[in-house]
Nucleic acid binder design. Structure first.
Lengths: 127, 127
DNA sequence: CCTAAAACAGTAATCATTACTAATTTATTT
DNA sequence: AAATAAATTAGTAATGATTACTGTTTTAGG
């Protein structure tokens, strides 16, 4: 678990998540890998994503149409979610590192999530 | 629809959401009203919440344990979500009104969501 | 190679949410 | 107010994401 020796499937799932910037759902990861590894199980993808979240290897970004979307880039950064096409964009800023803490006294902030919702330029230009 | 004459049930549901600061789930609203209105249907709560969201009377705040949590206060403000007890706290700030727009060129920002995740003071003190 | 623990495939179960339909409520017209 | 049409609802069934379960396979160590 805690070590660096992941099983073959577990490593494949993590690599797939780390290599894309599509902020995928569990099903997306499953279908991408299914092509090359037909005996992969959807439950395995879910189970491993849950595990990665616990270990901080992956974060939950948003929920689009009932599906949780995750990000393998755990460096603190903002996101833009397009309400029209459902795409999720990364927004990196020079002060991502010193993300604001919650101003409520006596509260302990683990993670600060900044998300913009709206229409992306592609959808605006397509109209 | 667009007018001010809501059906009895619809108005009840909206009032319940507006009157609480618990950032309720659909089921919470349903169970709260069910006590006094035993013939209320859960589907009606869901349908009306969807409608309120479309009309901008209510916003979606976060998703906790698979349940969407909403807020009847549509004034822009931040939230703190306690990972331990699942409570959602409002965080009002002097510059809520001029919430940042997404810095990506050509993108249209409808809503900026700032959420802190961590442990609330109650949970910290309880340990 | 042997053995025990961990991980997996495949399927069934769970649970939030949505869809559907017949009945009820609300609005409109007389 | 009665008659009619439109909107809303209750109750239930369907959907779809996620989780749980069980028997099998993979992995790690000796």
């Amino acid at each position: 678990m805690g070590g660096r020796n992941f099983s073959k499937k577990r490593q494949l799932i993590l690599d797939t998540i780390k290599e894309t910037d599509s902020h995928p759902s569990a099903r997306w990861v499953y279908e991408k890998l299914k092509a090359d590894f037909p005996d992969l199980s959807l439950g395995t993808v879910y189970r491993n994503i849950a595990l990665f979240k616990e270990e901080g290897l992956v974060i939950s970004v948003t929920n689009i149409d009932g599906e949780e979307r995750i990000d393998g880039n755990t460096h603190e950064h903002a996101h833009f979610v397009c309400k029209e096409c459902g795409c999720v964009y990364d927004i990196f800023s020079s002060n991502d590192d010193n993300a604001a803490q919650c101003p409520l006294a006596g509260f302990e902030t683990d993670r600060t999530v900044l998300t913009y919702y709206g229409r992306c330029s592609d959808c605006i230009n397509r109209e």
